[in-house]
Design a protein around this nucleic acid. Structure first.
Lengths: 203, 203
DNA sequence: TAATTTAGATAGTGGAACTATCTAATGATC
DNA sequence: GATCATTAGATAGTTCCACTATCTAAATTA
């Protein structure tokens, strides 16, 4: 298939496809001459994934990392997850206290070596931001956060398909990035439902 | 306090403060003459909240909505939550099928009137994005998502302080926006911990 | 009086994600 | 085989966003 058809199939403008090619998000097609190349179904699928990532709020640079991990996955699941997380998590350089975050990690069942420091730092940064805004999360709510994410994460990891490595990689890498908007949307929906129960329409 | 001091106290550059004033995120100070105004502690606190929102990934336009809700909150909790959600949720115009999202809402305990359609549409959009990427969430994992967000949302709503309306408003509005990065970071951490248990360092 | 500070207006910057144009070479069609 | 459309690759331009800088006239402070 040629560029025009790829564009039509995937619903992505030609200049944008060229941009993704330049940025290394989409592999080159098979060259048939100096000014022609042709593309296959894998390109269509890849384009759909790119759009999904970008729509999910992942930057083009982040999407490149995610896709690079998909293409050349590390062998160990922990490393795979680490790469997926590194591509998606916001990064900051500044030093922040990790103690509170570490305590939360322990409450989640953390054991030394069971989780990279960078993820603890993520949590620490989020806590720090809350703190700087003067916002305090009630202890009971924090406990529920831990319980909720534990439920979620345990099921996600239990759901990693072990039949073929490709499936596992796809599941872990894309699941990390693409499920985020869904989880946030589900939380908002659940909040409204819970609010309707507690405050039945009258304050 | 004058502009320079406000800037120093809040750690925000003067031009940025002026920008926030222009954009209506920060209320004007009390004018003492044609070229002077002075600011109070409320301005410092407000600036910290603005920075926290922006750091949390909320756009300046979104932050303006969040702050407007803080300043003039609706009376009903449901409306308050709705306004906070509307300010934070990604918005899309296109028509998408709501059926799957509605089914999830029902599994969360939805009852007609218990949740605005816009939140269901959010979920629907997230599901659609997953779908377009060809990514399928295993049923067990989706069940865990529902259970997890239900745990989280129930505790959050139960934690709404009812002593003073101001507290309730602050809790609902800021909690909606500021807890998002924390939840995502906690999920990533929990995933790594769960992965370390299931795949103990050797695929 | 002189130096500093400020409000308000206007304009400029840098990054991100596209989008457009151009050229030379191909491929498809008449 | 002439003509017209298409393409790769290069380069440049656009739009939006969140700032950041400059300027002026007035006011404050030293």
């Amino acid at each position: 298939m040629r560029m025009a058809e790829l564009s039509a199939e995937a619903g992505v403008p030609v200049p944008t496809i060229k941009y993704y090619l330049r940025e290394g998000l989409l592999p080159q097609g098979v060259r048939t001459s100096a000014t022609q190349a042709h593309y296959g179904d894998s390109h269509i699928r890849r384009l759909r994934v790119i759009r999904a990532l970008v729509d999910a709020g992942v930057s083009v640079a982040g999407a490149r990392k995610v896709l690079a991990t998909l293409d050349e996955p590390p062998d160990e699941v922990a490393d795979l997850l680490g790469a997926a997380h590194a591509a998606v998590a916001p990064q900051g350089e500044d030093e922040i206290p990790l103690d509170d975050a570490r305590r939360l990690a322990e409450r989640l069942g953390f054991r030394p070596g069971g989780c990279e420091t960078e993820r603890i730092a993520d949590v620490a940064r989020a806590l720090d931001a809350l703190d700087r805004a003067g916002f305090v999360i009630p202890p009971d709510v924090m406990t529920a956060y831990l319980e909720g994410v534990k439920t979620i994460a345990t099921a996600e990891i239990a759901g990693v398909p072990v039949d073929t490595p490709e499936e596992a990689v796809r599941y872990v890498v894309l699941g990390t990035a693409l499920a985020e908007p869904l989880l946030l949307a589900l939380r908002r929906m659940a909040e409204q439902i819970a609010a309707a129960e507690r405050f039945p329409s009258g304050t």
